[in-house]
Design a protein around this nucleic acid. Sequence first.
DNA 1: TATATTTTATGCGTTCAGTCATAACCTGTT
DNA 2: AACAGGTTATGACTGAACGCATAAAATATA
Lengths: 198, 198
Amino acid sequence: MKIDVDTLLAWGAAYKKVAAGEVIFHEGAESSFYYQLVSGKVRWVNINDEGKEFIQTIIEPDECFGEFPLFDDGPFAASAIADEDSVIIRLHKATFHQLLKENPELHFEFSRLLTQRLRFKFLILKELANHNPENSISTLLGYFKQTQKNICTKCNRLKLTRQQIADMTGLRVETVIRTMKSMQSKGTLQIVKGKVYC
Amino acid sequence: MKIDVDTLLAWGAAYKKVAAGEVIFHEGAESSFYYQLVSGKVRWVNINDEGKEFIQTIIEPDECFGEFPLFDDGPFAASAIADEDSVIIRLHKATFHQLLKENPELHFEFSRLLTQRLRFKFLILKELANHNPENSISTLLGYFKQTQKNICTKCNRLKLTRQQIADMTGLRVETVIRTMKSMQSKGTLQIVKGKVYC
DNA sequence: TATATTTTATGCGTTCAGTCATAACCTGTT
DNA sequence: AACAGGTTATGACTGAACGCATAAAATATA
């Protein structure tokens, strides 16, 4: 999902620079903006009592994030934190609604986005509930491969650390490392110098 | 999310009776309908290789289900199985699109539905990833309580078996039973004759 | 009221991911 | 080249949920 930046600007959207590590919005807070990433990288995470992160999604340029409150008026379901120095563009909620009203096609695209996100949640949830690290990891990698997210298109190398994979599957780094090694020895996964290729 | 039944009928929707245990649609199959439950109960589930079910959602009357393919043209993300003898109403995909186009407000309601479903997925996923049965269970019960789903409004009794709770949290029945007993002894949960009250 | 079926309950051995500690390996920087 | 910081790797121990078996209780059915 991506709204043309010129369109956004024409409707009064504003750019905002965020430094790596900066929190863009907090889980539980009220919202009044549509957010879209222009450049950089953002992770959409829940942080538990012990400080452990669960990464719901990694946002790449031209993707929107933090969209739930726009429709159900609830708070943010997770925090958005910049992984790298990033530029975001945001549009006021009321304006966003007007924009959708005047562009039904855009609204349909948005429904497609929500659907795709739900689809991914269904998929990953079903795997996590299964308590099979290998399946969880391959489902996750399969998704990233399919959507071309966090993959170096030039060399086909996955740009995810074991820690990130762990934080998206509810596993520990060590478990992810051990499981992936075992997958490599089975031939299920191609790892060169610790990096995953697909 | 509910579309008025008279409206659906006026647009050419058709009723369909399904017996308890009957599969309404299969995970992975192509779809061409909007589905809404009129009466009865339906579970929306994934079934793994060993036959173990993961219940994504339990659908109650006046709720729609199986809606992903309507927007992204993908297959069903989970199977729908009747828990009880039920009546469903379904509308052709193309007609559904037309209905949304002519009723922008309805489309906004639909976005709200998708958002709420996503919100629940975020919530439950974050808990599952945390590997804390007690938290998973209370989050789930909290959700059902909040949405009044599967709760006997007359006596405030939760109409969910431990097995169903297990199938929605990826835990085993025994673990759910044991955890809930411990919660009861802590005073976190009120159980009378094995049934949960809230 | 008696019977059958489903649901809840409990014990016990096993398994596998978690935890902690430590080392090796990359990668970028001065 | 040397250093620092992050990432990957590996071992040993622990613990909590699993898996299976069996029983008790509640609910439905006749």
